[in-house]
Design a protein around this nucleic acid. Structure first.
Lengths: 190, 190
DNA sequence: GGGGCATCTTTACAGTGTAAAAATATAAAG
DNA sequence: CTTTATATTTTTACACTGTAAAGATGCCCC
């Protein structure tokens, strides 16, 4: 629809395809991420993605890499580099892009050996893993445990929020405002 | 293979199919959970599952329900009803049954409105949600935050463990023994 | 201009899920 | 025991899917 410059046969097809994939993902969920649906949406033939991405997994891996880059950006834009703020940025990203977030951690749809994806995901993980720890850690295993604890809580919370399972924990219906408060409270717990 | 009593046409096909599905899941991962592969493995025609489960989603939902029941049993068999022991049971189950655990939380493969699955998953959640809290909570939102924190940490840890991403946090290679220690340490953190 | 080549389309094929109709065996009724 | 009804399974058919292989298309650079 809104290509920048139609230079080659069809403009730069790779970004067009990724755009289509993202639209479909947001519109109809992760089940709609079929190769033929993506190429159909982009207005090209069914196999047009092959020279650029190889196969479906290639397209989805590229899209997942974009997601990790955006997630990294969101975490980097926080004012305070605290567990609470970075965690909130992480979870807000997940809630704002549930389909993309799900795809990013879907091992069977995505090829994690792709260099782009590997780099992008490692950068995002680094933002979470190198949070300043409040309690001094003695052994390396303790340090790992602290990082695992933070990363697990944030990631777990994001998943629960996306799946709507946090609803089950509160008596009252969970409005967006209340959800934010719940997340902040949860992240503030040590 | 090992039917109890071959009464009907083919024995009780439902459990045979679920057994086949589970074998395929453990052998070849979640991508192998095709309806035709399951029926082929069970030695019946491609559409034999229809009268019992309706469609593929029905089979997978039933299998996921079994998983939740086993998870509940694992958590109920712990000696101490502490965050640490119940959490460890939860994560050990995930590590022992990675495919099944993944399936259980896969929203697009599974139909959560199925009564069996809904009941089973709610029971499992209840085991985690009603842990004794160490710090007295004032508001209901605080209580929800405490439950969310525990549930998120345990679930997040399980996912990280399954994906092998805990490896990235430790300098040394993560042997099973070291993994157990890391999990215990992480769960002991408040 | 005219090769060379990346890009895209066409065609073909093996799989998939599942709806519909036909076949089969069990259970129930007479 | 025979006959009917019903639940179970198979057969058939169809619209999909991903992708390999071969053919067309148009850009780039010498």
């Amino acid at each position: 629809m809104t290509e920048t410059k139609p230079r080659y046969h069809h403009g730069d097809l790779p970004s067009t395809l990724l755009h289509s994939a993202r639209v479909l993902l947001e519109q109809d969920g992760i089940a709609a991420l079929k190769l033929r649906a993506i190429t159909r949406h982009a207005g090209v033939s069914a196999t047009a993605a092959t020279p650029h991405f190889g196969n479906l997994s290639g397209v989805l891996s590229a899209l997942a890499a974009i997601g990790f880059n955006e997630l990294t950006a969101a975490m980097s834009n926080t004012a305070h580099k605290t567990m609470r703020d970075i965690g909130l940025a992480y979870i807000r990203f997940a809630i704002a892009n549930p389909g993309l977030f799900t795809l990013m951690f879907r091992n069977d749809s995505v090829d994690r050996t792709t260099p782009d994806l590997k780099n992008a995901s490692e950068k995002a993980l680094a933002c979470l893993a190198h949070l300043p720890s409040d309690t001094p850690s003695s052994s390396p295993l303790d340090k790992a445990a602290q990082m695992a604890s933070a990363w697990a809580k944030v990631h777990g919370l994001a998943i629960l929020a996306i799946d709507g399972q946090l609803q089950a924990l509160t008596p009252q219906p969970l409005t967006p405002i209340l959800l934010e408060k719940l997340l902040a409270n949860t992240l503030s717990l040590k």
